[in-house]
Amino acid sequence: MIGPGLLRGLKITLINFFRFPATIQYPNRRVWLPELSRYNSLTPLKLFLETPKSAILSLFGMAEIPMKIPQSPRFRGNEFAWFEDRCTGCASCAKYCPLGIIEIVTSPGSTDIQEGENYSIDVFDIDIGRCMFCGLCVEACPYDALHMGTSFERSTTVRNKLVINKDNLNNSDKKPSSWYRPQFEEREFNPFDSEIEDHYEAGRHEKPEKRTMKDRWVDRNN
């Protein structure tokens, strides 16, 4: 049984021994001094003056720099991006959800003239603890109000916090994933370093002029 095949096996592992590690050190990467100074774009001397602790640690290869996992913009993740101004409260998402974890309560809202606003939304709860991130709710939304998020570090120690309510959704970072949102891909929107501030940008069309809005909705010209 001692034979050349065993030696070939040894050869393969030896080749892999000299390869660069395929793994990513998440969330922090341990680095030595040269890499730390390159990361901070400072000379080593300045590094010792400005951040002495991490500079000394880096002499032993123990300094830490944050490391991100490369993600695709279509990543279906946590922290849904929801635009209240776009949501009509039609509850398509709640109907389409396989697990029924979205709860919506609406009441007849103001007569404020905005695109697609008819009902005011009193409750919009998503039970993230049971969500499986299939993205069907996003696919169902006819007004592009609900988007998948792109983050994934949202663990908590309290179960109650896993239910995202309307305030949380309103205050969360608007970093929507481009899952089922081709308009983001056409615009090459990158959710990892930019944010959507205006709810008009999230839609499938150009942002209308205020005058056309007035024409269309107030004066009923068209």
Partner: peptide, 16 residues
């Protein structure tokens, strides 16, 4: 083992 398996091995506690 880490090097043979193309990963970095233990590197959190102390230097390397």
């Amino acid at each position: 083992y880490g090097r043979f398996q193309n990963r970095s091995g233990p590197n959190r506690w102390g230097p390397m």
